[in-house]
Structures are given as structure tokens and as C-alpha cells.
Amino acid sequence: MINKTVKDAKEAVADIPSGAFLMMGGFGLSGIPENCISALLEKGIKDLTIVSNNAGVDDFGIGLLLKKKMVKKMISSYVGENAEFERQLLSGELEVDLIPQGTLAERVRAGGAGIPAFFTPAGVGTEVAEGKEIREFDGKLYLMERWLRADFSLVKAWKGDTAGNLIFKGTARNFNPMMAAAGKICIAEVEELVPAGELNPNEIHTPGIYVQRIFEGKNYEKRIEQRTVSQAKS
């Protein structure tokens, strides 16, 4: 089996240059590549384009890269939790493409699956449709969306093996599997890295063919945005 292991986040992101087109997995702060984001912060590169559903919060996740002005453009669906993001956007420092969430997920999926374009009903009649081809199929209007592919995709999984096979946990899966496939180089960070053969092939979510580099991350903070609880039953 091909061994995809690299030592750590620093080694994994060493060749990501300024101006790179990146994808980062995660929904909110769940399933984000924490270790790779820290390593990018230390590298201090700039002019990055980042595809990510959200943009982190002011002091965590992609919010940290925004604060250091490393990001030129974000391609996201919802960025509501980040005041610095909103400031940079309204002042024109940051370019932003806002895309319906399902369209974003499908554009990334299409990128990894070799489908250059597809038609979706999401956004018909709205400003999202501006400049896009509209077609009627069976009496309903759809608009054409293009695939998204990246130089590097940075994903986070729960478990992985040295062959790059990945298993996700809970809703931390989100965009990670599609992004793994849509990156020319996919860097996967995992909470637990095991030798090839130790994961049950029936339970693997992302086949290792999509993953070029894998390492075991450390010190996962897994910050919670909205801590909602119910009272324990007495």
C-alpha cells in the first residue's frame, strides 16, 4: 500500500505558496483542519483564495487567517459569525463569493468527480443567477453552475490510515469528503492515524486515492460556537 504519511502540519503545508487556491473542510467550527490552519499562520503566506462553507470566528479557524490579512478571497455560503470578515468585506479589502450551500457542496463534488458543470434550481430569480445560463427542464427553471477544484484541499477526519483512507465522526464530516477529492493535493489531518489494514474497509468514508498527505494532528481544541444544553432529567 502507498504510504501517504508526513510528519506534521508544518511539513504537510510546506509547499503551499502565496496566491494558492485552497479548500478547507468544516461546517462552522466542526471538522475544520485546525493543525493546518495553525501551520499556515506560521508560514505567513498571503493572497490566498479559500473555499470553505464558513469563515470561522474572529479568534478561531479561518478567522485567524483573515485577521493576519492572508486571505484575498473567500468562497463561502454563510459568514455570519465573524465581525472582522464583515468589516473587510464591507470595506472592500476582501473579495467574497457567496454561494448557496447546496450549490457549494455540489460544485466541489463535481470538481472531484470530473463533472465540469451542472444545473440546479437554487438561486433562480435571485442575484445568484446573474450572468449564468438558465434552462428549462420539464417545466422548471434551473441555472448552470461550474465545478470547483483546488490546488490544495485541507481536510480533517477522525481516523485515518497510512494509505490515506478516512473515517469522519458525527457532523464533522460535512464538506470534507468532497473537498478531499477536489484538491489536486489533499492534505488530511486526523485525530488518530493507524497503519493500513487497521480500519474496517466497510466503514471507510473517503478512499485513500483522493488523499496525498496524511498526518496525526495534535491538541485539537474543537471549539463550540453555540453551546446548547438540556437539563438532566431528575
Binding site: 461546517f27 466542526s30 459569525e81 457542496a105 468532497m178
Partner: peptide, 28 residues
């Protein structure tokens, strides 16, 4: 509480009997 289990509003949640997890492309 599990940080790897949130709803679309990013609130911590639980699952019920028969729940299933999937990626966001499948979801849409």
C-alpha cells in the same frame, strides 16, 4: 456535549434512534 455533533445553527445537539450521518453534498 459533543463538538462533532451540531445542527445547521451550530448548536450542540443529540441524535435519536435511527439517526444517520452523511456529507453535505448528499444532504442537499
Amino acid at each position: 456535549i459533543d463538538p462533532d455533533l451540531i445542527n445547521a445553527g451550530k448548536q450542540t445537539i443529540t441524535m435519536v434512534k435511527g439517526s444517520v450521518l452523511f456529507n453535505s453534498a448528499e444532504s442537499f
